[in-house]
């Protein structure tokens, strides 16, 4: 698997070259959000706002009203917990196209609970007018800015940084509100997002080797959540569906799927894999295992839904993993 490095850094510069009204705003974390080179390239289009996220958010709304397209860069956690009121009243209510580029989503930071945005999707799904993208690989990093630019309203991106695997073909960019089919089958439906998709790919390979027919789809648009292909897949999976996400068990992908199942009167059994509560500071792989959002947890959930012991062990799962994020 190819590991790409600093993909957003390159994409943000290329994107801004095409759109002169695009600005980057930073609350002192730009160099941790891959826009250091952007600042050097476009110093006049890089606005340092100080460590003052509330003002930055409302200020962006003012810039946006005058025709600029601000892309706010900071850690995910500061874009919804700290400034939810500003995000709602200054930006979401008037439906302004401010793009919130949130870095180190979920447990992709060793920074501990204050840095880990484990319930951002749950909170922001309840914000009217908001669109939410959850990035899963380098190809999606390359595609998401163009998608965000086309949305008529505010956008929240759960962005990945530094070493990120390329899971999907570079010439097949992400599509709005369309899941990506990675495996076709009808025993089990696996819906995965963010860094959990790599885990799900690994688990799917093992499950298929044991004779299970697996439909695996990667989801990158979490709001809106109306992809008819997901609904079709929910209808056809014999044993049920497992969702796995880099997020709290409540409010994210799993909850969106539960809504879809209920609203369509389906009886599909659902297992929601996510972190069970607040987490602590440690390496990504340690946290994924500790809080059960890894390939083995997914295999266990599938075995439980199918009522079968498939005899898959950790050793069976491919050991290829992407490089841990060690910096805060």
């Amino acid at each position: 698997m190819k590991i790409e490095v600093n993909t957003h850094e390159r994409c943000m510069i290329d994107f801004a070259a095409k759109h002169p009204e695009v600005l980057v705003m930073s609350a002192d974390l730009g160099s941790s959000c891959e826009v250091k080179k952007f600042r050097a390239t476009y110093p006049d289009r890089y606005l340092t706002m100080g460590i003052a996220e509330q003002n930055m958010c409302s200020w962006a709304a003012g810039m946006c009203r005058e025709g600029f397209r601000p892309f706010i860069h900071t850690f995910s956690v500061f874009l919804y917990r700290r400034i939810l009121d500003q995000l709602e009243m200054s930006v979401a209510y008037p439906n302004l196209p401010v793009v919130f580029v949130g870095f180190v989503p979920g447990i992709t930071t060793p920074g501990g609970v204050s840095h880990q945005s484990i319930n951002d999707v749950g909170v922001l799904r309840t914000v009217p007018n908001m669109t939410i993208f959850d990035i899963g690989d380098a190809t999606e990093i390359e595609g998401v800015l163009n998608l965000a630019y086309e949305v008529n309203g505010p956008v929240y991106i759960r962005m990945l940084r530094k070493e990120v695997p390329r899971l999907f073909p570079a010439d097949e960019p992400m599509q709005f509100n369309r899941a990506r089919v990675l495996s076709e089958g009808d025993d089990i439906l696996i819906l995965s997002s963010s860094i959990c998709t790599e885990e799900a790919i690994r688990a799917t390979g093992a499950l298929k080797a044991k004779g299970l027919s697996v439909q695996h789809m990667h989801v990158s648009t979490l709001k809106p959540f109306t992809d008819p292909a997901i609904l079709d897949a929910l209808k056809k999976c014999r044993y049920g569906c497992v969702t796995i996400e880099n997020h709290y068990q409540i409010g994210g992908l799993g909850t969106a799927v539960a809504d879809m199942i209920a609203e369509n009167g389906l009886g599909t059994k659902l297992v929601k894999i996510g972190v069970p509560g607040y987490t602590h500071g440690a390496s990504k792989m340690y946290l994924m295992k500790k809080y059960g959002i890894d390939a083995m947890s997914l295999v266990n959930a599938v075995e439980s839904l199918a009522g079968k012991d498939l005899g898959i062990t950790e050793d069976f799962l491919e050991e290829e993993r992407f490089v841990d994020f060690l910096e805060v």
């Binding site: 606005l47 409302s58 200020w59 810039m63 200054s90």
Partner: peptide, 24 residues
């Protein structure tokens, strides 16, 4: 111009507007 009921935000929105107008 905007929805101001939550205090402290409008001054920032107005300043952001002033900043944008200055740039333009």
């Amino acid at each position: 111009e905007n929805t101001a009921g939550s205090l402290g935000q409008t001054v920032s929105i107005a300043a952001g507007t002033a900043h944008a107008r200055k740039i333009k």
